[in-house]
Amino acid sequence: MISIKELRRSFGPIVAVDGVSFDVRKGEVLGFLGPNGAGKSTVMRMLACYLRPDSGTATVCGYDILKNPLEVRKSIGYLAENVPAYNEMTVGGLLNFVCDARQIPGNERKKALDRIVPMCAIESVYHQAIDTLSKGYRRRVGLAQALIHDPQVLILDEPTDGLDPNQKHEVRQLISKMAKEKCIIVSTHILEEVEAVCSRTIIIAKGKIIVDSTPEQLRQKYGCSLEEVFRKITRSKVA
């Protein structure tokens, strides 16, 4: 459902993403790993049509991100790393705005809200302004916003960052539950999370893909925990 071809993007002299290509199929949960500044967020932002690639392209659900960005955005649910939101709005106000923008009409909207609000456990803050929320609640609102239109493709940039252990567990369960009918890319720094939810891992460093494998294969190949594998790979290759 996602097909990325030779995506490249630099910011001034810094090459953030340097010719990344991969495909993700329906039913796959791709764990996107890499040290800070490896280019994970940049790849995700390009997929969400927020940044334009310098060269290369990608298709999401058959739509090209350059030629048909609107259709791409319709089929994607995107949670950005810093959870962008309008701080002065209430949680309900924001979700309704997203419904407006995604053209979810009255009846469906009520159903969608009834489904998503308990799912992300944000009932208690529904009428609260977003800038009064804690980091964890804010992220859950971001997640609700990304899931509200039941997208086929989910792009989640560090979805569990700032959540408490219980919430982390819940979000992982949520991802596993949705995995079958969707195509999900999750970036994270928490390697146990990759083992818990991902069916595939890609490790990138300095804008290039170093490893494209499954968590089990990696562990077998290197004969140690995923954390050690990550350290071995990114340290030797980057230095």
Partner: peptide, 12 residues
Amino acid sequence: TGSIELLLTLPI
């Protein structure tokens, strides 16, 4: 505030 990233990743 970064909210532009939300706005411009919606189908708008």
